[in-house]
């Protein structure tokens, strides 16, 4: 173990990095979800096979989502620095990074939500319509609740993607494990710092994945029991 790594541990830099990574990831994903969920619902509902087709709205939103999704995060980040400055008053530090993470993650989440909602059986939607349910009721009581396991799964995948983005944010002034690996490991040629950061990231990903899958299994009422034939 290099002296630098020992010092980082004893100064509490490593544990601070873990905390900052988790904090940035969760805050960004949460806010991105709050934006991405309605966006995904609108895209899915306005689709030509959707509950209430609105072609122009669907086309515009779909186009915007695709633009943001097709720009690599590291480039999007740099391009969005002025936007962050307008929103949080600075283009440096975690506040600005969180804005960037949200901008990158929200369209991603919108697509996840859209595909989850599209998997809901059309017959069930038809049944709800036949009972006189309004589109709003169908969205709340049929689409979202029937797609719940898929939505949770999507949220887990999004969280892990955002976690990866936080590391990249370290290159342009973010903090957290990614920043530690770059400033102390890469720039000072201390491989062990890099490996420790990578290991901690892997552990965080595993924990998120396990917790997420546990919730999915708990919430999904379709799989954990086998059907009895007739």
């Amino acid at each position: 173990m290099s002296d630098l790594l020992k010092q980082l541990f004893s100064d509490g830099m490593i544990s601070l990095g873990v905390w900052e990574t988790i904090y940035m990831t969760l805050i960004s994903t949460l806010v991105a979800y709050i934006l991405g969920l309605p966006l995904g619902i609108i895209v899915s509902v306005s689709d030509k096979d959707g509950l209430r087709p609105v072609a122009w709205l669907n086309k515009i939103l779909s186009f915007l989502i695709n633009i943001f999704r097709s720009i690599p995060f590291i480039i999007l980040m740099v391009a969005m620095l002025p936007v962050a400055k307008v929103i949080v008053g600075t283009s440096l530090g975690n506040k600005a990074m969180i804005v960037m993470l949200i901008i990158a993650a929200a369209p991603y989440i919108a697509r996840m939500v859209e595909s989850s909602l599209k998997e809901v059986d059309k017959g069930v939607i038809e049944a709800a319509k036949s009972m006189g349910a309004s589109n709003w009721k169908i969205i709340c009581k049929v689409l979202l609740s029937e797609a719940k396991p898929a939505l949770i799964m999507g949220a887990v995948i999004s969280t892990i993607t955002v976690l990866g983005y936080t590391a990249m944010a370290g290159t342009i002034g973010g903090t957290g494990l990614g920043a530690l690996a770059i400033t102390y490991g890469y720039e000072r040629f201390k491989d062990d710092v890099i490996w420790v950061c990578v290991l901690l990231m892997v552990i965080i990903v595993q924990i998120i994945q396990e917790i997420g899958m546990f919730i999915v299994r708990k919430s999904d009422k379709r799989q954990h029991t086998t059907a009895i034939e007739n």
Binding site: V124, S145, E146, S219, K221, R222
Partner: peptide, 12 residues
């Protein structure tokens, strides 16, 4: 109305 594929809400 009832259907060939039942169309029940699987999560309820």
């Amino acid at each position: 109305m009832i259907f060939q594929s039942f169309n029940l809400l699987e999560q309820r």
